[in-house]
Deep mutational scan, measured.
Amino acid sequence: MDVFMKGLSKAKEGVVAAAEKTKQGVAEAAGKTKEGVLYVGSKTKEGVVHGVATVAEKTKEQVTNVGGAVVTGVTAVAQKTVEGAGSIAAATGFVKKDQLGKNEEGAPQEGILEDMPVDPDNEAYEMPSEEGYQDYEPEA
């Protein structure tokens, strides 16, 4: 019985440690998101679009440190934060509304985080759909 109880105690310690790591990862992701939003706020009209992409990228980098179902929630929060940063930029006159959601080359930025393969159960990952990809044929 002692062996059984000791095993359960060790398992509990492992769960607590994993929860603490997840909590730490979420806190880091939130900190990076805040950094990115402050970065966007300090940019001029020309830099705002690039700044919004930076927020998304920093958040995406930190999301990889967070495991399990938390990833889905962090990704949703990050996307809403990026959308909010863009709205703030438009409201303050840093950028025109028609410039939001495009990178410096004018290509749409939507789907940055949505296409990231995420499995809350950590069982399997699927690649994003290939609808947006084109076949590449090298020139002879």
Results as ranks from 00 to 15, higher is better:
residue 10 K to G: 01
residue 79 Q to I: 08
residue 75 T to F: 14
residue 15 V to S: 00
residue 58 K to S: 06
residue 106 G to Y: 12
residue 106 G to M: 06
residue 93 G to M: 03
residue 81 T to Y: 11
residue 16 V to W: 11
residue 91 A to G: 06
residue 119 D to K: 02
residue 133 Y to F: 09
residue 117 P to D: 07
residue 51 G to A: 12
residue 39 Y to Q: 05
residue 23 K to L: 12
residue 127 M to V: 09
residue 94 F to S: 05
residue 15 V to Q: 00
residue 126 E to P: 12
residue 113 L to T: 10
residue 72 T to C: 08
residue 30 A to H: 02
residue 6 K to I: 14
residue 59 T to M: 04
residue 76 A to F: 09
residue 28 E to Y: 04
residue 123 E to A: 04
residue 116 M to H: 11
residue 118 V to M: 11
residue 53 A to R: 04
residue 62 Q to K: 08
residue 51 G to F: 11
residue 41 G to A: 11
residue 78 A to N: 01
residue 34 K to Q: 02
residue 107 A to I: 03
residue 133 Y to I: 02
residue 47 G to T: 14
residue 137 E to F: 09
residue 103 N to M: 12
residue 107 A to E: 06
residue 137 E to C: 06
residue 38 L to Y: 12
residue 34 K to N: 01
residue 16 V to P: 00
residue 115 D to I: 05
residue 17 A to W: 13
residue 31 G to W: 12
residue 83 E to H: 06
residue 71 V to H: 04
residue 4 F to D: 01
residue 75 T to Q: 13
residue 133 Y to T: 08
residue 114 E to G: 10
residue 113 L to W: 12
residue 27 A to W: 12
residue 75 T to E: 03
residue 76 A to T: 13
residue 59 T to A: 12
residue 25 G to T: 15
residue 110 E to W: 03
residue 63 V to R: 03
residue 65 N to D: 04
residue 117 P to F: 09
residue 21 K to F: 15
residue 139 E to I: 11
residue 39 Y to L: 07
residue 57 E to M: 06
residue 93 G to A: 14
residue 81 T to R: 02
residue 125 Y to I: 13
residue 81 T to Q: 02
residue 9 S to A: 03
residue 58 K to G: 00
residue 99 Q to A: 13
residue 94 F to E: 03
residue 9 S to V: 12
residue 123 E to M: 09
residue 109 Q to K: 12
residue 19 A to E: 00
residue 127 M to W: 05
residue 61 E to T: 04
residue 120 P to H: 12
residue 135 D to K: 05
residue 128 P to F: 06
residue 63 V to Y: 13
residue 86 G to E: 10
residue 118 V to R: 12
residue 133 Y to Q: 07
residue 116 M to T: 15
residue 110 E to I: 05
residue 44 T to L: 10
residue 47 G to W: 09
residue 56 A to D: 00
residue 121 D to R: 03
residue 100 L to V: 10
residue 57 E to R: 04
residue 85 A to N: 02
residue 119 D to M: 10
residue 108 P to G: 03
residue 96 K to T: 14
residue 31 G to F: 15
residue 124 A to Y: 15
residue 94 F to Q: 04
residue 37 V to P: 00
residue 37 V to T: 01
residue 37 V to K: 01
residue 127 M to L: 07
residue 36 G to T: 15
residue 6 K to E: 02
residue 100 L to H: 03
residue 130 E to G: 13
residue 44 T to M: 15
residue 62 Q to A: 07
residue 138 P to W: 11
residue 134 Q to T: 03
residue 75 T to R: 05
residue 51 G to H: 11
residue 92 T to S: 05
residue 67 G to H: 08
residue 75 T to L: 15
residue 59 T to Q: 01
residue 105 E to H: 01
residue 107 A to V: 10
residue 122 N to S: 08
residue 7 G to W: 14
residue 32 K to C: 02
residue 134 Q to M: 14
residue 125 Y to F: 09
residue 55 V to Y: 13
residue 139 E to R: 08
residue 124 A to E: 13
residue 54 T to W: 10
residue 42 S to V: 09
residue 52 V to Y: 15
